[in-house]
């Protein structure tokens, strides 16, 4: 586990993430469609486990494990249901509480945007740690924060690039997110594996 300085290799990680996505594009699109539809239909209650499912698939691809993940493997996220659900619930509630600040004229909205970006960057590896190392949501969040803290701006840059790529599909009435969101997951999975390394087999 790395908690010191990390060399953030933008180009290399984005390239590897794109390759992972491109090689399994059909599986990614269907899995992403399932994840988004179920998350929206359940008012966000299942966002955590569905995202955990996508993360699980990305990690299996990064580790080049056989058999390759299938579209139904998005439901593997339910193996981490409680922790992923709590991760989304607790941080969602915290963000909602912080968003009250936006009621303050002028500065309020700016503060909320800055805090939101900082939180997203600090927690970018939280769900990966829950899925990969089977950690509880709070230690996973704190570990992610500790790793990101000394390398905040490089990781912020990586997250911004990944999110821009991942959300560019939103231009097409939001439907394109189904196609582009898994690219962001793949890029972050490659980054996670490079930062945290491969865990020894149990």
């Amino acid at each position: 586990m790395t908690e010191g300085k990390v060399d953030v290799k933008f180009g290399e990680w984005i390239q590897q993430g794109w390759e992972l996505y491109k090689a399994n594009i059909g599986v990614w699109i269907v899995a992403s469609l399932l994840a988004i539809v179920i998350s929206v239909a359940t008012l966000g209650i299942l966002s955590g486990p569905m995202m955990a499912g996508l993360v699980w698939m990305a990690l299996v691809l990064v580790d080049r494990k056989e058999p390759k993940p299938q579209m139904g493997d998005v439901f593997k996220g339910f193996d981490y249901f409680l922790q992923s659900f709590l991760f989304f619930l607790v941080w969602g509630v915290i963000m909602l509480a912080i968003s009250v600040v936006s009621l303050i004229p002028c500065v309020g909205t700016l503060v909320v945007i800055v805090v939101s970006i900082v939180l997203h960057t600090a927690l970018m590896f939280g769900l990966f740690l829950i899925v990969d190392k089977k950690m509880e949501f709070w230690p996973a969040s704190m570990l992610s924060l500790n790793v990101v803290k000394p390398n905040f701006f490089p990781f912020l840059g990586l997250l911004v690039v990944a999110m821009l790529i991942g959300h560019v599909g939103a231009i097409a009435c939001g439907i394109g997110v189904i196609v582009t969101m898994p690219i962001a997951v793949c890029i972050l999975a490659v980054a996670y594996r490079n930062v945290f390394g491969v865990q020894a087999a149990a």
């Binding site: 209650i45 299942l46 486990p49 339910f78 981490y80 249901f81 409680l82 659900f85």
Partner: peptide, 15 residues
Amino acid sequence: SGRGMAMAGLIMGYV
């Protein structure tokens, strides 16, 4: 197995 799915069903049912 399927503890996570069962818990998800329970939570959504109660909600």
